[in-house]
Amino acid sequence: MAAMTIDGLHWSYEKGGLHIEVLRDISLSIRQGEIIALLGKSGSGKSSLLNLIAGIANFHQGEIRIGEHRLSQFDEEQRSLFRRRHIGFIYQFFNLIPTLTVAENIALVLELNAEPRASLKPKMQKMLLQLDLLDKSDDFPDVLSGGEQQRVAIGRALIHQPALILADEPTGNLDATSAKQVLDLLIGQCRALNSSLIIVTHSKAVADLADRTLSLVDSRLLAGAQGLAW
């Protein structure tokens, strides 16, 4: 059974009286544990697609299925609950909570999912160890480097072992060394958890690590790295 399928998804918005079509007739199927690199020019709709898959934005035409769940049948409240249980999201600009420590940022999703305190702590410790952030667990995000912040974000996205992880240019804001460390960690963890990953990127190196590469060109989803000069 596919981890996620998209059927005939359309998405558009109105701006200044103009109808702007961002995604047209998108269909896609991802296996459990598959890693997909999503390419496309700036403004091609990659982030919009991730937001739709995460249930952050709503759609009116087509369907997105994650496991047995059909997102079109969820209202906003249900999408919120679904997101915190089944999806992990990693952003280019980390989006950590500045008033929570490293450990607390990672544990937040578990708490939202009402994870018992007894099992929460060991999971958090294990994740900190995997992320090599044990010595930073009580630090606040503002004292961390970019690479460290993104590792925390990865920990937060993976701690609840979601079926699907969405990463929106996770290395776009990092130097080459940090980017490699983060990428290795992210892909390694996804493989270990058998989580599916959709990673939006402009980087060939990232695309090369993926099982499959897709491109968004003129609002359509195409196989391979289309129209991009590395």
Partner: peptide, 15 residues
């Protein structure tokens, strides 16, 4: 608002 956005993206409901 940014933090609230993150909360919501992480799955915090409106209520």
């Amino acid at each position: 608002q940014r933090v609230i956005g993150i909360y919501r993206a992480l799955g915090l409901s409106r209520r």
